[in-house]
Structures are given as structure tokens and as C-alpha cells.
Amino acid sequence: MKQQTDYHADLQAIRSMMQRSSKFLSLSGWSGVMAGIYGLLAAYIAQQQLGFDPTSLESAKLSGMEAYDALRGMMLLAAILLVLSIGTAAWMAQQKAQKLGEVVWTAASRRLLADLAVPLLTGGLLLLALAWLGYHVLLLPASLLFYGLTLYQAGPVTYTALRILGLLNIALGFLALLITEHALLFWAVGFGLLHIVYGLFIHFRYEK
């Protein structure tokens, strides 16, 4: 007859297998912190260097070149931010998985990516369309809203704390929509500060 420890080990094996096969936990906390730092830097550059102000962009729509240049700079900045953040996250996930003797490219991570692609691409295309049509005042709120939705969607497949992060970003998106003059500040909180807080939380809670 089997011993108690065997039954215990059986249950433990079941639990770990269900988690390992269905959840993607390789996402490193530090990559969240890094993404937050990039986000804060981007917000700073947008304000100091490009003089980004969504409300003035709106009114300056007709005056032409200056507003256009500022917008182009912003788009470039956003693209760099996106590539840097995703690149860092992917690289750190690879490192973390390697350390734990696991692989990054599993059924769970494939499903996560497929799930995230829909809200993220929808948001990205919407942002391009808004910029194209001249609704500049909506750019920051929309980016927060769709990013929040994406994170909320990712929650069940990875750390549940991501759901809360998503909801907070959605709330900030609405604030940015209603209080336009501080939109960049809300954006910096969502993409900068919250990332850092989340990253530290994951690190000290799960990676210590």
C-alpha cells in the first residue's frame, strides 16, 4: 500500500502540472520595472523635448508643420517604447525560464500571445486611425484603455495581479479622457509608475 507521502506527492504533482501547463509564469518582475522606467522616460521626453500637449495639438491642427512634427516625434517615441519594452520582457522571460529549467514557448505562452494580439492590435490600429483623422486628444486615453483591456485579458493565463493592473489602467484611461490637460500625467502613472509597482510586487512576492 502507498504511504501518505506518496498521496501527498501525487496531489502536489497534479497541482504543479495544472499550473505549469496552463499558466505562463516566466514573465519576470524586473521586466515590468524596466518597462515602467522606459515609460517614465518616454513621458518625460514627450513633455520636455517634444513639448507634447494633446490639447494644443488639437487646436494647432490647422497651423500645420509644428504640430505635425510633434505628432511624428510622438509616434516614433511610442514605437521605440513598444519595441524596447517587449524586447526586454521577452529576453528576461527567456533568462528566467532557463534558470528554472523550463521553456518559454509552451502551449500556454502561445495561447497568451494569441489572446493578447486581438485587443492590442485593435488598440494599435485605433491609435493610428485617431492620429490620421486628427483626434489627437484621444490618443493617450485610448492607449491606456486598450492596454488596460489587454492586461485584463492576460490575467487568467499569467499572474492574477495583472488583472488589477489592467483595471487600473482602464480607470486611468477614463481619467485622461475627462481631464485632458493632465492626460500625459495619467499616462505616465499607468505606463510608468504602475509598471514599476507591479514589477516589484511580482519580484518580491513570487521570485524571492
Binding site: D10, I14, A107
Partner: peptide
């Protein structure tokens, strides 16, 4: 067997898994 327990656990937690994914995780 432990393999069968793992197999059932992985299948219970996912809607569908292909052979290679199962092999990887188990």
C-alpha cells in the same frame, strides 16, 4: 502512474493540447 496523473492534470487545465505540447510539459 505519475505520468497519467500529470497527463490528466494537464488536460484538465487546458481546453486542448497537442502531442508535442504534452510531451514538453510532461
Amino acid at each position: 502512474s505519475r505520468v497519467r496523473l500529470g497527463l490528466m492534470a494537464a488536460l484538465a487545465a487546458n481546453p486542448q493540447l497537442d502531442f508535442n505540447s504534452l510531451k514538453e510539459v510532461l
